[in-house]
Design a protein around this nucleic acid. Structure first.
Lengths: 155, 155
DNA sequence: AGTGAAACGACCGTAGA
DNA sequence: TCTACGGTCGTTTCACT
């Protein structure tokens, strides 16, 4: 989040290529080329550049619900003292899939995935609230995921 | 989030295939096959099944920072009355990339991406706090993203 | 940065265990 | 659900613009 370099300036063709891969990350370069009006080789070079520069990556994403993780929640964490160690401890917990240091009435926001309520309770008590420096937590149990983007920027 | 079907039971081979695609979504079936000890056709069939059933998808993910969106924040929203319409309105805003209905001291959590602070202020005032039913908001500006998973479950 | 062509490798359908 | 195999299509390299 901190490294401020210049934003990558993408032309419409690169944006179109990204959109193609957002729809289906395994679409062939040839097919993308047809869609965006470029040769296969040119598409491949652009994709290479986009991934090498870190603007884009193509990855598999799995659905927690389909895998039996029926309980998701965001945990707002208030910390006494330095937040660094607490956030690292949180990030090291497998059930925690998202950790961000924030400014506001929470110092850290952490998203967690659990199989059920019992797991969530234990996660909170045994793994999160027991971390030294964690002063208090507030839990927001997910009821319905309304929108989720893995992709930003090309809008 | 609501449709509760049985969790997909994945054997070690399917988990290994998913891990391969989490590392690189464009890895060839043949190469994955070598890594997991399966023929190319078998890998292809499994990937097909995983994507058809919605357990997994392969997509392009872009980095907002690299695209000039230097300000991210989570907005906690308190709503008077029905939360459905508010969440739909929020989800329709391009700068909002994540919306979830929650139980707790917020009714909705929404993640936003902006280019700078000015954009965030305007987003809040003109697009979010102006939605009928939005009683109050609390903003958690992101300072440092510590951990981000696009994938869960295979742990 | 882009195209085009030829060799190579991946992908897909089908058949069979 | 897997392997095997042939036809088709995608990818790679390279020479050229």
């Amino acid at each position: 989040m901190s490294p401020i370099s210049k934003p990558a300036q993408l032309d419409d063709v690169s944006k179109a290529i990204i959109e193609q891969l957002q729809a289906d990350g395994r679409r062939s370069y040839a097919e993308i080329g047809k869609a965006v009006g470029l040769s296969e080789a040119a598409v491949r070079q652009r994709v290479q550049k986009l991934t090498d520069s870190g603007v884009m990556q193509v990855v598999a994403v799995t659905d927690p619900m389909q895998l039996g993780f029926y309980r998701q929640a965001m945990i707002g964490v208030r910390v006494t003292g330095d937040t660094t160690e607490v956030s690292e401890r949180l990030a090291s917990i497998p059930a925690v899939d998202y950790v961000v240091l924030t400014a506001g009435s929470f110092d850290i926001l952490a998203e967690v995935v659990c199989e059920n309520d019992q797991d969530l309770i234990e996660l909170l008590n045994k793994e999160i609230r027991s971390i030294p420096g964690v002063q208090s937590t507030e839990t927001f149990v997910y009821l319905k995921l309304q929108k989720q983007f893995y992709n930003w920027g090309t809008r």
